[in-house]
Design a protein around this nucleic acid. Structure first.
Lengths: 339, 339
DNA sequence: TTGAAAGCGATACCAT
DNA sequence: ATGGTATCGCTTTCAA
């Protein structure tokens, strides 16, 4: 483990010069710079993260967290994990600015990004899929802000990291499980939050392909609940009357799960409809306990929050780059005992 | 974030004195010591982990890893995760001594512990359940070695941390899944590595209770495979001939899974026997792809290794205590798409 | 018993 | 363009 001091001695220069070279701060004789770089390479120099951490505080390492998490049970768990991480990492000098909002409002999120852009060195954001937001985020990245997209990726954005689920695989997994349960042939209903939500569409695609592969199942209806329990309740009632032969439901939505299940119970269909839903939230758990929901797909909310914070900590405090561009959480199947 | 220097100034003493008090090194006027302690409390002093890390290297922080992992596919993943962690943490000055052995030999493991006891500050060990080992480990703990029991807890041991699965819950989860699959009533066969393996017994108990709760299923036979594919192959052939009505298998063993599945195929019973096995290892995966195994219980080998190393790093390098005594991994249900 | 000072590794600033 | 020095928080050693 060679240090910057040893490197300086080996090269016959001062630590300051080595530091300037290795961090591209300029003002160094090109020939000398080349020599130092070569020596660093040869000696396998790696900056010691502890030394970096000690000086990092001067930059007031700060991360902004932007999540429309209020009222979304799944995000509560993500946020809780990030709060735990904050507690731990603040001992290391990391500061956190929270911007938790209610609902998806492009203008509001854009304003928050603008506001934070001058105060933070890193940004953890659940971005709304909108060109305006993408643009703002690209501006942040240009300003050398380290950006982590959480739970929803930003397709056209510059260099950043994604932490979140593989939506398509969630649908495929649900489809495989439904077939394993073996109460088919299935006539399926699928709920999504909104047709505009890319992730939910991907779940639907994965699910449809999985269950139709054998030719004996099909998706009879897809409806939106706008992540709202009342809308979900009414839509479910309506759709089940229109499609009385539906015998399986895939709840690709997150917010309306409870409303959907209440509708099923009201129609006394919980016995003959197999239901797979997402996320181990209190209402979902209740419906599993009451044997309305048969299985839950779990997307590691805690891991998502923790990983996002850890990436920021490693970058800002220890000067360590992430070793991937995407951190994809597994879709886990959970039943009552392992919920 | 008050520092030791600020504390010293507040108390009108030197940093050295504060350090002696807070680390109980003695040689301090009792009245002064009490005053300093009080002030530290009042100011919510928490030692800065970065400062600790910077000086930790003088103690040559070293962890010994003792695992009978050779030839056990599941442990390969645990070890791989620990190797990745080693790579990262060695930048922080952590040193690792590996002692990976083949097979469970009490005398051999005891000898390794003795050998390491003088060289390490921490020990990550997959302990053999044996009084002799427990005694050795307790001796380590008395010597202030930080002990992490990995994948198998040491019941009668002194203060230590456990990282690993909840075996009983693994059985319960398998039982719940089998019932959800709904090809019952089930006549079950169960394989364990050995009757002496506590974890496998707990899986069996959890499984049995789960499937017999409704009264329509039962466990017809339990056999050992000693984690050996050939033994597993023969035992399975024998048991399925003795119990031709078996229509479900719970492979609570780890090592013999492939042998068991080969026997099933040789008997052409893969269509009518539902099989649940543990661990996403290459042979298991192959049997899932060939539709011999219906579902796999995944025990987060990677997380297990990573968490064990992280606990050691936090303790030795940052001076942070673990915040739990047990880190229990979830039992996850995996099918082909999310394997 | 106590204080003063050096050192860990990287960085920032000031003087040259 | 370059070197020297102080700094971050904590530990350890040496001197008093």
């Amino acid at each position: 483990m060679v240090t910057i001091k040893q490197l300086a001695d080996l090269c016959g220069v001062s630590r300051g010069t080595v530091d300037r070279v290795l961090n591209n701060r300029g003002n160094v004789n090109p020939a000398k710079a080349a020599m130092i770089r070569e020596m660093a390479e040869k000696m396998h120099y790696r900056p010691n993260p502890v030394g970096k951490a000690l000086t990092a505080r001067r930059k007031h390492p700060t991360v902004g967290i932007v999540m429309p998490s209020e009222g979304i049970a799944f995000f509560d768990d993500v946020v809780t994990a990030m709060q735990h991480a904050e507690e731990k990492y603040q001992l290391f000098g990391l500061r956190v600015i929270w911007r938790l909002t209610h609902g998806y409002d492009v203008a509001a999120q854009a304003a928050i990004i603008d506001e934070l852009a001058d105060e933070v060195n890193a940004l953890i954001i659940n971005p709304i899929s909108d060109p305006c937001i993408v643009e703002k985020i690209n501006a942040c990245i240009k300003k050398d802000i380290f950006v982590v997209a959480l739970n929803n990726d930003i397709e056209q954005a510059d260099a950043h990291v994604y932490v979140g689920p593989d939506y398509r695989n969630g649908g495929e997994t649900a489809g495989a499980l439904l077939q394993l349960i073996g109460r088919g042939p299935y006539t399926c209903g699928v709920t999504v939050g909104s047709r505009r939500l890319l992730g939910h569409q991907q779940r639907l695609q994965g699910f449809t392909e999985a269950i139709t592969a054998t030719g004996e199942n099909h998706v009879a209806a897809v409806w939106e609940d706008n992540d709202d329990d009342v809308q979900a309740y009414e839509a479910t009632q309506r759709m089940l009357k229109a499609h009385p032969d539906i015998n399986a439901l895939f709840l690709a939505s997150s917010g309306g799960t409870y409303g959907t299940c209440r509708a099923i119970r009201a129609l006394h269909r919980e016995q003959d409809i197999t239901i797979i839903a997402f996320d181990n939230t209190p209402p979902t758990r209740e419906m599993v306990e009451q044997h309305v929901i048969d299985a839950v797909l779990y997307q590691h909310p805690h891991q998502q929050g923790q990983k996002a914070m850890q990436l920021v900590y490693d970058k800002l405090i220890n000067g360590l780059q992430p070793n991937r561009q995407q951190y994809i959480m597994q879709n886990e199947i959970r039943l009552l005992p392992n919920l």
